[in-house]
Simulated assay, not measured.
Amino acid sequence: MSEPIRVLHIAKSLGLGGTEKVMQLFATHLSRRWEAVVYSPRDGERGEMLRAAGVATHIQPDLFQVLQRVRPRLVHVHRAGWPEPELMRPLRNYGAPVVETNVFGRFDPSPSGRAVTRHLFVSHFCARRFAALHGVPVEPPAYGVLYNPVDTDFFAQALPAGPDFAQALPAGPDFAQALPAGPDFSRPVVGRVSRADKGKWSPLALDFLPHALRAAPNLEYRIIGGIPEAEAWVDRNGLSGRVRFLPPVRTDAELAAFYGGCSVLAHANDTGESFGLVIAEAMACGLPVVTHPCPPPRDNAQVELVDNEVTGFVAENAEEYGLAVARLLGDPALARRMGEAGRQKAARLYRAQTVTLQLEAIYDEILANQAKGKTP
């Protein structure tokens, strides 16, 4: 058997952010034809998880030194997309093909940015906006769309058992058993997950509550990633008995336990989402999602993930948002149906094994073109 092809994945840190999680999922789901190695100047929780999974990590400031030591055939950099000469210049000097996951759909016209062989956007929204803003056709072989991976199989198996979610997805080759029960939609529990970062919040994340409570007075709102301003708003409006602020979670098992105790995911972020990993994970757990659109040119992939009136609701304002939440809480059959539609969509489009196979095909194409002396 031939030696595996070494791929160096690069992220600016190995903390608990979504960019780092996507990199971790790719690195740990590549087939045995590939050897994933990870570089970052800053270690963190995902570094520990990668090493526990058997993936070598290199934590130091000098990227070019790591490139010379590791000698990867391919480099995959996970970044925002804007010019970062200190990061990209070593890649250009090294000379191996570079795949870029362009997390925010930004443009890098700098000389060091020309090191990238293939630009991958994480949503069709990002690709369309990029083409419209910069007049660059988003076409192969230089550009493409590859959704972020989600460990949908794990979420399906890790959900706590509940009596109100009996339907299973059709068994596939990688499903060892039928999917278990999931959320119990008889509970009037709304969940929210984000980093404890003001930039991840919208006033809508709280302003919907009075409207929802009028129609669903027993509603309980559980929040991971609360910020001081949100806690002050809850106290000021006398809603401490209806809102619980919970500590952050580290693992998918903790996320599954949280989602399994909810009936609806409430998503609200004024900056929008270039993909929406929290939304995709909630869908993988069988939860319907309520979200809102963002005006151009802000990120708006949340409405690409959430199909209005199919996998959840897209609300325009606080009253519409609150009524959508209350409708789902008051109609468990509707919540179950939308949650199942979301779970099927997540398994079809974001399943980590499937998306990683698509990435491997891109790697193969790039190396084949390199062997033929072709350039993108």
Rank of each mutant, 00 (worst) to 15 (best):
L67R: 06
Q68W: 05
P72Y: 03
P72I: 11
R73K: 15
L74V: 14
L74N: 15
V77C: 01
G81R: 02
G81N: 00
W82L: 01
P83H: 01
P83V: 02
P83F: 01
E84M: 03
L87F: 02
L87H: 10
M88A: 03
P90Y: 07
P90L: 01
P90C: 08
R92C: 03
A96M: 13
P97V: 14
N102I: 02
V103N: 15
F104E: 15
R106E: 15
D108V: 05
D108Q: 01
D108G: 00
D108H: 00
S110C: 02
S110D: 02
S110N: 10
S110V: 02
P111V: 08
S112D: 15
G113E: 13
G113N: 11
R114A: 08
R114G: 09
V116L: 00
T117I: 11
T117L: 12
L120K: 09
L120N: 06
S123D: 09
S123Y: 08
F125K: 07
F125G: 06
A127H: 06
R128H: 11
R129Y: 00
R129L: 08
F130R: 10
A131V: 04
A131I: 04
A132L: 13
A132T: 10
A132F: 11
A132K: 15
H134Y: 15
G135K: 07
V136E: 03
P137G: 05
V138E: 11
P141F: 13
Y143S: 10
V145M: 05
L146S: 09
L146W: 04
Y147R: 12
Y147C: 06
N148H: 14
N148W: 13
P149L: 07
P149R: 02
P149G: 03
V150M: 00
D151I: 04
T152I: 06
T152S: 04
F154T: 01
F154A: 10
Q157A: 05
Q157P: 01
L159Q: 02
P160T: 09
A161G: 12
G162N: 12
G162D: 11
F165L: 07
A166H: 12
Q167C: 11
A168H: 01
A168F: 00
L169C: 11
P170R: 08
A171H: 03
P173C: 05
P173S: 02
P173W: 04
F175M: 12
F175T: 13
Q177M: 07
L179T: 11
L179V: 06
P180K: 09
P180N: 10
A181V: 04
P183W: 03
F185R: 15
S186E: 06
R187K: 15
R187Y: 07
P188Y: 08
V189C: 12
V189A: 08
V190Q: 09
V193D: 00
D197A: 04
D197I: 04
K198C: 01
K200A: 03
K200G: 00
S202T: 09
P203C: 06
P203K: 05
P203F: 12
L204S: 11
L204Q: 05
A205R: 05
A205Y: 03
A205L: 13
L206V: 13
L206S: 13
F208A: 09
L209M: 14
L209Y: 12
P210V: 04
A212Q: 05
A212V: 11
A212P: 04
